[in-house]
């Protein structure tokens, strides 16, 4: 009887879909896993574009999803240090622990920028492994896609060919798109911008934009009035063209600076789902570049 009740409970609670269960820490990895897996994967997106990936809570719903995941795809580089360790421990899921095939960290696969020479919290919440927001350079996505497709194939050997094929298709499409984006964004080269947090380092690096400052006085420290006042003069002197924020950053500090300097404040989608057009990885860059160009005279 007990077994019957349990079976009913499981049947009611478990999704009927039987694809490889992927737990993606950030929307960009959920999008990439969907691109590579198609209908063979069942992707759970743990966070969305309106959430600050640094400040997620290890909510019960996330633990429940991590419990049944077969593959965890996260950024790593300490981005999820405040919540992922708790999630992994509480999940009781051996398959997705660090070191196991079910644990995949994207940041390990790319050349990271802004690796601090010195780790001191006096300089804010610096990540020892460098800037973790790697998704805004599409070449990084290419670097991650190959190993991720391979991993999907290892975990789901029956469909390894399917993943390899989809990877080839994604890779070709992405390469063509990168060439187009680079052409479109060529006029942006050398433009000076101010960002709220060091969220766009890889985008700037890719397109040749110059970060003239950040609204945060130090990474993870909320923008204060003294620092903002200092930025007013700095922005004018350096001929800053844009102030950039992510959808989850408060619009207030950027708005304040924009009002005083006349420099437009632009919200970039930052990740998949961050704007109406950024519904997949291609839309993400289409929209990002369009928004940058639209407001840059």
């Amino acid at each position: 009887m007990k077994r019957f009740i349990l079976a009913c409970l499981l049947a009611a609670a478990l999704p009927v879909h039987a694809g490889l269960r992927v737990f993606a820490c950030e929307p960009e990895w959920a999008a990439l896993a969907k691109q590579l897996g198609g209908d063979k994967v069942d992707v759970y997106e743990a966070t969305h574009a309106l959430q600050d990936p640094h400040r997620i809570e290890a909510r019960p719903s996330l633990i429940a999803r991590a419990r049944s995941a077969q593959l965890l795809v996260c950024t790593g580089a300490e981005l999820e240090a405040g919540w992922l360790p708790t999630l992994l421990r509480e999940s009781g899921n051996a398959a997705i622990q660090p070191g196991r095939p079910g644990f995949f960290e994207a940041a390990q696969l790319v050349s990271r920028l802004e690796i601090p020479a010195r780790i001191d919290r006096g300089e804010g919440d610096v990540h020892a492994s460098g800037n973790p927001h790697i998704q805004l350079d599409p070449r990084n996505l290419l670097a991650v896609a190959g190993p991720l497709a391979k991993r999907l194939g290892e975990l789901d050997a029956a469909n390894a060919g399917h993943y390899a094929e989809r990877h080839q298709a994604f890779s070709d499409r992405m390469r063509a798109a990168i060439a187009r984006w680079e052409l479109e964004a060529a006029p942006l080269k050398g433009a000076r911008v101010i960002a709220q947090h060091k969220s766009f380092g890889y985008l700037f690096h890719w397109l040749g934009l110059v970060e003239a400052g950040t609204l945060e006085p130090a990474p993870g420290i909320e923008p204060g009035s003294a620092h903002l006042a200092q930025l007013v003069a700095q922005a004018k002197a350096q001929q800053v063209r844009l102030i950039l924020r992510t959808p989850y950053d408060s619009p207030r500090p950027g708005g304040w600076l924009s009002e005083r300097t006349g420099i437009p404040l632009v919200t970039l989608p930052f990740t998949v789902g961050g704007s109406a057009r950024a519904q997949d990885l291609f839309g993400l860059f289409d929209d990002t570049i369009a928004r940058l160009k639209e407001r840059t005279p």
């Binding site: 790593g76 240090a81 660090p98 070191g99 196991r100 994207a106 696969l109 050349s111 990271r112």
Partner: peptide, 20 residues
């Protein structure tokens, strides 16, 4: 030289850096 400047890149996405 490039590799040197971006040294923490062992290429194995299984290696966890959860705690640093």
């Amino acid at each position: 030289e490039k590799e040197k400047s971006q040294s923490p890149q062992d290429g194995d996405p299984r290696a966890g850096t959860a705690g640093g």
